[in-house]
Design a binder for these strands. Structure first.
Lengths: 203, 203
DNA sequence: GACAGCATACCAACCAGTTGGTATGCTAAG
DNA sequence: CTTAGCATACCAACTGGTTGGTATGCTGTC
C-alpha cells in the first residue's frame, strides 16, 4: 500500500498541527513529517491555507467514519444512545494530549479571523459532527417530553463542552480534567431527561 | 497619564493575540500596535515567550479586578450568586469576537506543548478565576444538599463550557451561539440544584 | 556620571512560495 | 506491439521577505 504525497501530508498535518498549532507549523515541518519535499507540497496544495482546509475536511472524513463504526449506536433507547456517545467520547480521552484533542477546534482559534475558508471548514466539521447526534437527541426529547431545548442547540452544546474540556486539559497538562468535565456533560443530560443515575426510571 | 512602553505592550498584546493568535502575532505587530520600538520591547521582555507569560498575568489581573467589581456578588443566596455570575458572563458576550473571548484560552492552545511557562501562566489564570467561584458553589452545594459534584470540579466546568462556547462562536462567526451555550450551563446549574426556572422553590 | 528608558541599525535563521526540471504512467495513432 | 504526445507526480535549489533577537547609541532624571 503505497501512499501518495497528498495523503501523507494530510495525515502528517493532523498530528503536527494538533501538537504545535497551525501557525507554528511550517510547511517544512509538514514536509519533513510526511517525508516529502516542498515541491510535492505545492503541487498538491496551492497554499498553506489550502492544506489547512483540506486537512479539516480530511479530519471530518476520518472522524465521521470512526464515529459511524463506533458501538454507541446500538442501544434501543435514544437517550441511551446519547449517553453512550458521551461515554464513548470520555473513553477516547487517553494517551498524549495531541492524540485525543480536536484538530479543527485547535485550528479555528488561530485562523478564524485570518481565513474565512479555514473557519468555514472547521465549522463544517464541528457542526457536521454535531448533526449526527440530532436525530437521537430529537427522539429522546420527544420520548421523555423535555422542553426548553432544541436538538440542534443541545447537540452543539455537547461539542462546546468537549472543546472546552480539551482546553482545560491542555492548560493543566492533565487529560484527567477533560474526563471530569465530560462527566458533567453526562450529568446534565441525565438531569435534563430526568434520568438521575438509575436506568430507565421514567414515571 | 503617560503610559510606559511595558504597559502599552501588554495592553496591545491582549487585543492583538486574541484577534490573530499568539504565533501569528509578531513582535513587530505588537510594537506597532503599542506604538513602541523593538528596542523597547526587548528592554522590558527578554523574549516573546516572556511577554506571553506577562500578558497572561496581566490578563489575570485586569479580569479579576473586573469580576471583583461586578454586581453578581450581591445576592444573599449562594446559588443566586452563581447563577448571577453565569448571567453576567452571558451578557459579556457582545461586539466583535476578539473583544469578549479569552486571551489565555486562545494562547494555551498554541503554546501548551511549546512552552511550559506559558502553559502554567494560562492555567494559573483559568484556575485562579475558577477558584473565585468555589466558595459560592460550596455554600450552594451545602445549602441545597447536592451530592456527586465538588466545588472545584463544578467551578472548572463553568470555565470549560465558556471556553467551548468561545470556540463555537469563532468557528461559526457568530457570538449568538456562545450565548446559547452559556444558557445550557445555566440550565445545568439550575437542574443540579433542583431549581428549575422558578425562584427559591426548595422543599 | 550613573542608570533607566528608550531608539536605530542590524543579523542569521527561517518563512511561504517559485523555479526549472525529471520520472512515470496513460492514451491513442501507426 | 510500438511509440509519440501529454498529463500527473514529484524533486532540489532558490528567492524575496519576515522572524525573533542583538549591539550600540542617545537622552532625560536622580
Amino acid at each position: 500500500m503505497k501512499l501518495g504525497a497528498r495523503t501523507k501530508l494530510l495525515d502528517a498535518a493532523l498530528g503536527t498541527i494538533r501538537a504545535q498549532g497551525y501557525s507554528a507549523t511550517s510547511v517544512d515541518d509538514l514536509c519533513a513529517a510526511a517525508g516529502v519535499t516542498k515541491g510535492a507540497f505545492f503541487h498538491h496544495f496551492k497554499s498553506k491555507d489550502a492544506l489547512a482546509v483540506a486537512a479539516a475536511d480530511h479530519w471530518s472524513e476520518t472522524t465521521s467514519a470512526m464515529f459511524a463504526d463506533a458501538p454507541y449506536h446500538a442501544a434501543d433507547d435514544p437517550l441511551d444512545r446519547v449517553l453512550a456517545y458521551i461515554e464513548f467520547r470520555k473513553n477516547l480521552v487517553q494517551g498524549e494530549i495531541p492524540a485525543f484533542t480536536c484538530l479543527v477546534g485547535t485550528m479555528v482559534q488561530e485562523a478564524y479571523a485570518a481565513s474565512d475558508a479555514i473557519r468555514d471548514a472547521c465549522w463544517r466539521s464541528i457542526a457536521g459532527h454535531a448533526a449526527t447526534l440530532e436525530a437521537d437527541i430529537a427522539a429522546a426529547i420527544e420520548k421523555y417530553d423535555v422542553d426548553g431545548v432544541t436538538p440542534a442547540s443541545l447537540s452543539l452544546y455537547t461539542q462546546a463542552t468537549i472543546q472546552g474540556a480539551f482546553i482545560l486539559a491542555k492548560a493543566k497538562g492533565d487529560p484527567g480534567v477533560a474526563i471530569d468535565m465530560i462527566g458533567h456533560l453526562k450529568r446534565y443530560i441525565e438531569l435534563l431527561f430526568k434520568r438521575q443515575g438509575r436506568k430507565a426510571s421514567i414515571p
